[in-house]
Design a protein around this nucleic acid. Structure first.
Lengths: 291, 291
DNA sequence: CGAATGCTTGAGCTTCATCAACTTCAGTGG
DNA sequence: CCACTGAAGTTGATGAAGCTCAAGCATTCG
């Protein structure tokens, strides 16, 4: 039907997406929405690593929520150039087509074996009527994705290659760390190729490789065959030029139940993401042999 | 409080945002949501051209909907680099903070004199209860914005400077044309500087200038002191490499009331945006003096 | 008319892409 | 266990696309 490329991939089996249903440690919309869609979804669909969940131009079936696995949302240009729009982790909404006839405006490729739940169009209305708050929560969830997209825009549009790559690594690190707080992180699994990183950052795979080499030489981070090691978190954050507010939004700081209007730290005070997410151990681990 | 730059601008008075309240000619969520927010909003806030509606890190007041005027949503990096995330037209939702304590993760600058309606947090719940469909419509609206952001990502990440600039011009042309169908378009007003275009496309103002020069020499389009002339629409679309599906999503093809499941044209058939939006007159107007 | 903002152009330079060859790694089947 | 195969990573040489700096011009607005 369409001539989309579909690079099949073999993925190692120890990826970090095993235990999804432990309670989320942070307040967000995801819990509510995902629990609800759980009840209304028609079937779980299983997709093998490397296959597409859906493609551009296909008719959307309703609301897609990712239950388990890693997924890349992407766009293809006519000549084959590819842009990865987002790396989706479990409990995220992959797509939302509220009505019949809507077409997918981007594709979705499974990076690992994945499970997806789908709530069909016809059930969305009912779901919405039964649970009045649902729509707003969904809006919040999608709004969060939009925020992520905006951050990527800033990164790709205005940052250097080195900044972009470190930014992406750090983002993925923080987001996965939030999903699976128990995991050890000295060496974590990211089911991506360097080419994928390039497609996400607007660079070529070759150049990503060079950037990664420099990061390794500077003892900041290593990425090699789908394995990420963060050697110097502080420097990583520094190079990435992360705005702590942004990082908080990845974690899901929607603060649904904070009704207090007590003055919070002002704009200039920086919530220390590093401390929140990175165990001291790692900071100590290597004292950095810098030039 | 924060050291954001705030370039004041003088804007000519003949910008195209005068008659907002004529009925929308296309089916979308905007109509429903905006009519509702109209009833619940606390006050209209008026902002002069060049001023910020809100800034990064400020506490959000609830749901912001743009009633009249042009607004640029933007991000700033530490060193002053700026990325424009979206140009918002009337009837769009600028921001949506569902709960207290949420911070704006991007800024919004008025490009013209603007009017904004705000529905405070406390009224959002009530609005939602009174109008059950509202949440979903809002979700659809935000989802549409996310789609726009994804398109910009593809553009900035994978296209050449020439493609990016033409893409942006065409997008803005189509979106404004959809809002104000009656306007003549041979020469339309875009309240942007070349620097703004650069900040939106991830280029420098200087380079945007060079690209615009080439487009002028190739008799494709002219942009000069906030005035856009499209000389050769067909070529413009060609250079921009626009996917017609994408263009349709700008127009708002959510197809809310199309319940028919009759087979629609397949993916490969290209809905002709050019025909839908561009009057033949323009195509004829210049036969193109090409090299 | 004057000031301020925005546009235009050139020269030199940096960053990143392209091409191509080579190496390493992971999975497969003997 | 090894050899084999295909995918992914690595490196160098070369060039193009776009940035920076700097100076001068045009347009708008008061």
């Amino acid at each position: 039907m369409s001539n989309l490329t579909n690079r099949e991939r073999k993925i190692p089996s120890d990826h970090a997406s095993g235990s999804v249903y432990r309670g989320t440690p942070y307040t967000d919309h995801a819990a509510g929405v995902l629990t609800l869609t759980d009840r209304y979804k028609s079937v779980d669909r299983q997709i093998k690593a490397g296959c597409d969940l859906f493609r551009v131009g296909e008719r959307g079936e309703g609301l897609y929520s990712l239950i388990d696995g890693w997924v890349a949302l992407y766009n293809l240009l006519d000549d084959g150039r590819r842009q990865i729009l987002q790396f989706a982790l479990p409990k995220s909404v992959l797509a939302f087509l509220p009505a019949h006839g809507g077409m997918m405006s981007y594709g979705a490729q499974a990076l690992t074996d994945t499970v997806v739940g789908i709530v069909p169009h016809e059930d969305l209305g009912q779901l919405c009527r039964d649970n009045p708050g649902m729509g707003m929560q969904l809006a919040g969830l999608i709004s969060q994705d939009r925020g992520l997209a905006y951050d990527h825009l800033s990164s790709i549009g205005r940052r250097s290659a080195r900044e972009r790559v470190t930014y992406l690594l750090l983002e993925l690190f923080i987001r996965t760390r939030m999903r699976w707080p128990g995991h050890r992180i000295e060496e974590m699994h990211l089911p991506l190729t360097q080419e994928d990183i390039g497609d996400a950052t607007g660079l070529t795979g070759v150049h990503v490789n060079r950037v990664l080499r420099d990061l390794r030489q500077d003892r900041i981070a290593e990425f090699h065959y789908r394995r990420l090691r963060i050697l110097n978190p502080d420097k990583l954050i520094d190079v990435a030029g992360i705005d702590p507010h942004v990082a908080l939004s990845w974690i899901g700081n929607n603060a649904c139940d904070k009704e207090s209007s007590q003055p919070q730290p002002s704009v200039t005070s920086t919530p220390n993401i590093c401390c929140a997410v990175m165990p001291r151990a790692i900071s100590r681990q290597r004292e950095a042999h810098l030039p």
